[in-house]
Amino acid sequence: MISNYLGRETWLHRMPAGAKLAALAILSVVILPVDDWRALVAALAGVVLLYASLGKEAFKRLAMIRSFAVLLAIIAALHLLAGTWQEAVAAVARLVMMILLADLVSMTTTMQAMMAALTPVLTLLRPFGLNPRKLSLAVSLAIRFIPVLSANWEARSEAWRARTGRRPSFRLLGPFIADTFRIADHVAEALDARGVARSRRGGREWG
């Protein structure tokens, strides 16, 4: 449920996540200083072709740019008011291209691969007290508990509707948060029972 991931495998899926992230970083650095609208539109056309090369399903994903429509319209309008239409086209094309390129990486890389590729970077933060294994546990736990908390909220709203006949109010937030604290106690206990962070020979390091 929670992934932007594109189910059907394409050639871009098979590329290592690290390479894709590096390519994205390099492309950003190259694209940002470009001002020539013709170059930017040509490059954008190239990105669209890239989507097309991944098949119909991926191509349909281009529609997600619609969620940026209001924003893009405002940017275009501002540039038209303050400058030339060439500047407006360049600004919109640059932004759309950056968003599409980033989405291209997200939709062809699993969360596990993304985590694995970014973990070495995060390991650099180790001197600041960040433990990579604890971090990956935290990520898994969060993904696990998002649906649990949503279900908890849903159940509460339902009980509220059943008893009042009205729409759920933010007054439900108080008991919901209090309940979350109780769940935290259970989760901490379950982690303890499974041996997380108990000092032991031969076990994994938790630090």
Binding site: I2, N4, L101, A102, S106, T109
Partner: peptide, 25 residues
Amino acid sequence: LFVLLLLFGAPLLAGGRGGLEVFAG
């Protein structure tokens, strides 16, 4: 942790957005 989940590609922002494109926008 929430920001990191977005970075890893979970579409958790209101409206179902997430992934690297959020940080490009």
